[in-house]
Design a protein around this nucleic acid. Structure first.
Lengths: 201, 201
DNA sequence: CAAAAAACAGACCAATAAGTCTGTTTGCTG
DNA sequence: CAGCAAACAGACTTATTGGTCTGTTTTTTG
């Protein structure tokens, strides 16, 4: 059951992007961590950028589909799913051995800030990941409306954008303040808000 | 009325940090834009990092004190002030000739993502700027409670953190999607939320 | 088992960029 | 106006880093 070097490179690059960012991460260190060499990497990927893009795509889509999508799928009631997601996030594993942690915040946010205005390919990819995330939440908000746990007065996509924004902003604050109470207080306020904004009638 | 080169360097560095980030910005280009040379810059600052830190400090504190603080000071009612701030932000000038723009989002968020886990000096500075921002809002929320436009059931600092998070997250979304409607919809939801969470009685 | 292709190792190259150092200009002061 | 210090110009140094290229090992396949 030998792991494929291409996958190892993708995971290792993700960790570098998450912890150091794109410009500050260097290939030699990355290759050392991955246990390979220049030749090994350039055999699979045409450039640092190509590996980084593929890495963000695989990990980003995977985390949304499996962690978020999985939580939604395990609950009939999307309210409980959202609550569980926010409680589970601080201890979540993003990919392989790489845990989510408050010191480094949200990798998607990090890449958006660092790269989206600098490189069009990154921008396009990051936007598509963000769209996938928002679409998944909106979809489940709609489901909540259909099964009657939420009212119909709100627009699911708008509400999903609001939720995502609130989470991203909270994680930014966490990254610089590293106080878990802020996360708990903010998510509590968010859930409280949702109950009001989405109430029936 | 000749402008001081030290100030020009601070403004030019801020633009570079805002538009390219710390690692991707290079000194030669920056010096060309500022109209000076290596000798000119190293006369005032010991390193690129020193200039960047000073730049973020001056501009960050200035924007919070003047733009945010100014808006709060012009209104007795902090509800109206917050509303005006959110409406004015898309056309605000951050410093000198550098306008706020959705393509580049929030410079504070950008620096937090790129630098706070990478360099302790950046982290300390960025946290202090964030604290100043939150404290200013909390202060004015408290004022709103005291003059009776808001109820007393909420904790000003927690609410300020929630507001800041929501704005930061919204600007992250703007940076990658660049659709002003999202900003308008999100800020509308935020204000709506505040009215509910801060209501009297 | 032999040949070919995939996978990998690592020396080398070229570009970039921060920082240094020497020398020149500008402006203030006694 | 002389002298001195602040302000600035720019060539040079040094370190880093992404990418290339040649050669070796491993695996697959006919």
């Amino acid at each position: 059951m030998k792991e494929n070097m291409r996958d190892i490179l993708i995971q290792t690059m993700f960790e570098s992007l998450y912890h150091e960012g794109y410009n500050a991460s260097n290939l030699i260190d990355l290759l050392k961590k991955a246990g390979t060499s220049k030749g090994g990497m350039y055999h699979y990927f045409g450039s640092k950028k190509e590996l980084a893009l593929e890495s963000m795509r695989i990990v980003g889509e995977g985390f949304i589909d499996h962690f978020w999508g999985g939580c939604f799928a395990r609950h009939d009631d999307p309210i409980r799913a959202l609550d569980e997601i926010l409680k589970a996030l601080p201890n979540a594993t993003i990919i392989g051995e790489c845990p989510f942690d408050f010191k480094h915040g949200c990798p998607l946010n990090h890449m958006i800030q660092e790269m989206s205005a600098l490189d069009e390919d990154f921008k396009i990819l990051l936007e598509s990941i963000m769209d996938r995330w928002i679409a998944l939440i909106a979809e489940n908000l709609k489901k909540g409306q259909n099964i009657g746990v939420w009212g119909k007065s709100f627009e699911p996509t708008r509400m999903a954008q609001f939720i995502v924004s609130s989470i991203e902003g909270t994680l930014t604050l966490m990254k610089v303040k590293q106080d878990i109470r802020i996360y708990e207080e903010n998510t509590e306020l968010l859930l409280q808000t949702l109950k009001v904004l989405t109430q029936k009638g």
